[in-house]
């Protein structure tokens, strides 16, 4: 790619005019970027790569996958391995055709001069690509992952600068919650939690929450904490969502389902006994 000495204007989302575009990130993307950054070549300052995903019906860009693209960078020049990018794209689309290019990522803080060129390349691949920056150095205490879209500022026929506009980014990663942050945030986890251990953890969470509410309500009643109508409404909604059942009906429901499950347990135990018995007989009863 050609040399770049273009001006880049960077806006944060607070200074923006109303923009309906927003993005959502799958945790896999962040894991992938971090892994690529850890494995980057010696002399490389940053890694860049392609983001794959789809645009949801409501206009949100759903970033679901990514891959790194090797590149070379000098002071005012950026060279991207375009062939690699296309090969990888083809391979990815063989697995999942629904995922298309939605933009590109780069590690480091904010947008730099070279970014405008790469962005230009990606805008030829897809209209209005997203630029995701991941600050692997944690240089600021604040948000470390940002998403931008770009416009060209031109005066007459002359392009003056590429304007990068930050867009809201949804980092609440349901997929990561499903796996459990406990598993993902530690450097080593000796064992994947089993069914019952997970259950125990969840119940502890629930009990802790109930205790919190108890404490809050008690505090309010005794005048230690100023009452907050909003919280009160939430609590009353939560209490109200419990179905009102006569105790006898409720007992019947619980007992019925308990018995159903017990029966299943009994059945499965019988089956297992039967299996071990059958195995002994099958291998022993050979002598005729």
């Amino acid at each position: 790619m050609a040399a770049s000495n273009r001006t880049v204007l960077q806006f944060s989302s607070s200074s923006s005019s109303s923009q309906s575009l927003s993005a959502k990130v799958h945790p896999l993307v962040i894991f992938n970027i971090c892994d690529c950054y850890v494995r980057r070549p010696d002399q490389a300052e940053r890694v860049i790569g392609t983001l794959l995903g789809s645009v949801l019906p409501d206009g949100t860009v759903d970033i679901r996958n990514s891959y790194a693209v090797p590149h070379n960078e000098s002071v005012d020049q950026v060279a991207l391995d375009i062939e690699y990018h296309h090969n990888m794209l083809l391979s990815h689309q063989k697995v999942n055709q629904k995922e298309i290019i939605v933009g590109w990522y780069s590690t480091g803080l904010g947008v730099t001069g070279g970014s405008a060129l790469i962005h230009e390349f990606y805008s030829r691949e897809v209209p209005n690509p997203i630029h995701l920056t991941v600050d692997t150095g944690f240089t600021t205490g604040g948000s470390i992952i940002k998403a931008y879209v770009s416009n060209n500022l031109s005066l007459g026929d002359r392009q003056i600068a590429a304007q990068f506009q930050e867009i809201p980014l949804d980092l609440r990663m349901v997929e990561a919650e499903r796996v459990g942050y406990d598993t993902l945030k530690a450097t080593t986890v000796d064992k994947i939690p089993s069914d019952l251990e997970g259950m125990e953890a969840s119940m502890e969470h629930l009990l802790a929450l109930i205790d919190d509410i108890y404490k809050y309500v008690d505090d309010v009643v005794e005048g230690r904490v100023a009452p907050d109508n909003k919280i009160g409404k939430f609590i009353s909604d939560a209490v109200g969502s419990l179905p009102k059942l006569p105790p006898s009906d409720f007992d019947k429901l619980v007992n019925d389902s308990l018995q159903d499950h017990l029966l299943m347990l009994y059945l499965s135990s019988i089956t297992r006994t039967q299996l071990s018995l059958a195995e002994k007989l099958n291998t022993a009863a050979q002598i005729l």
């Binding site: 850890v38 942050y181 598993t183």
Partner: peptide, 24 residues
């Protein structure tokens, strides 16, 4: 066994939401 690089561990700790209840 599950292992994560220190970088990922840092990111996940940073990104973990404050809400006490998770999807899990």
């Amino acid at each position: 066994k599950v292992s994560n690089s220190a970088l990922i561990s840092a990111f996940m700790t940073e990104l973990e939401p404050d809400t006490p209840v998770t999807q899990c």
